[in-house]
Design a protein around this nucleic acid. Structure first.
Lengths: 216, 216
DNA sequence: GATTTCTGTGAACTGGAGTTCACAAGAGTG
DNA sequence: CACTCTTGTGAACTCCAGTTCACAGAAATC
């Protein structure tokens, strides 16, 4: 059940948004300024933060990094009456997920929120699949050996890898290379030399961290 | 085939050690001072570094951290004629694997080196088993869900976990909990409440790093 | 051009992780 | 004390990752 935080100094707007959000099944808290919003964020997990710009003490644009530092996975939607291209760009640069100009129809806000939640759910699924793939693929010791080998020697072709591994059945190595290729961790150039991809580099970073974590 | 680096200003000792090492099958390089030793270390991987203490410019004890920063997996054996408790303690604190007092029998040095190489091989095996266990265990999505769940809720017992996962067959959950227990990632207290162990915390760190790495 | 090496594909098999179902003892509850 | 819930164990089964073996086309080498 998604949670929403409304940060706005207009108490009437806060009440209206809260009412509509909760009628749609979104648990909604609110704060009248950024400081109070940050305090709420410290103790609760919010999927969405609706953030006004013009507020006493700290304006919403400046608050974006503070909100994201506190809770990186929150999606921030900026709401402002004084919309300019400059502030929109600045907000997006600082990490806002979207930007709405007051006054807006509450329906429009709902649609934006639902879209963002849906996108995030999709992204979470894709991410979980990546993690699943990474762990499953690298759980095999032969594939770990292969990826370390290719990382250390940037000129190896198929049979050279097979010999370096000391594996007599080349079709066994072929199978594991195929798995690594299909996961986009390694690639072959036109001379059939194997290289680590960017994704493969990330996997190697992960393996390195795992190794360090477990050896202490 | 293990590689050894001898760093000593006594050229005769360097030659003697090199000769004996290589007759035992250890590829051996040498340097007359720590600077030259560090240069060799930058371009080569050494399993063992034999390091004198009294040397011009930089003494061996001060050089230990520089050597280990350049190549963390090298094992440093300090060789000194002026042995004191203080320098021995200092060397070990700075990361030396062992400490020999000159003059020593070359046989004693060989025994020390072989022991260290054997210990490291054993440690590497244990570490690789830990990595294998971690990746295999966490490759399963149900077990990932379980460990995140226990991390977030520190009061759950068996059937509560089963219900939270939405799994109808409790023996399925029982199976996965057993696997996590056997890997020492979770533990149950006397009230049957599940907790994450220190090792489990490390696994969660690894998963977090993997997640961050793959989502960018 | 014959032979060797490289780099595949494919099918049958194997082993074991994971699932499912049966069953049950102990603890808690009414 | 009867019933419900919790927490198991165990066996049979399923599914699939991984292995092994057979085979073969293309490229390189002699």
């Amino acid at each position: 059940m998604p949670r929403v935080l409304v940060v706005d100094d207009d108490s009437e707007l806060r009440a209206t948004i809260k009412e509509v959000m909760e009628s749609e099944g979104l648990i909604t808290d609110s704060a009248e300024n950024a400081e109070k919003g940050l305090m709420l964020l410290k103790d609760n997990i919010y999927d969405i933060v609706l953030l006004d710009v013009i507020m006493p003490k700290m304006n919403g644009i400046d608050a974006i990094p503070l909100f994201l530092n506190t809770q990186a996975k929150s999606k921030i939607i900026i709401m402002t009456a004084y919309s300019t291209v400059d502030t929109a760009v600045e907000a997006m640069k600082k990490g806002a997920a979207d930007y709405l100009t007051k006054p807006f129809k509450i329906n429009e806000l709902m649609i934006t929120i639902m879209r963002i939640l849906e996108e995030q759910k999709f992204k979470d699924c894709a991410e979980e699949l990546d993690i699943d793939c990474a762990l499953s693929t690298m759980a095999n010791p032969i594939r770990r050996q292969i990826i370390h080998l290719i990382d250390q020697n940037k000129t190896l072709r198929f049979m050279e890898i097979t010999r370096a591994l000391g594996i007599s059945d080349h079709t066994k190595v072929n199978f594991h290379l195929k798995v690594l290729k299909e996961s986009d961790y390694i690639i072959q150039n036109s001379e059939k030399i194997y290289r680590i991809t960017d994704k493969g580099d990330k996997i190697l970073s992960c393996l390195s961290v795992i190794e360090q974590n477990l050896s202490s």
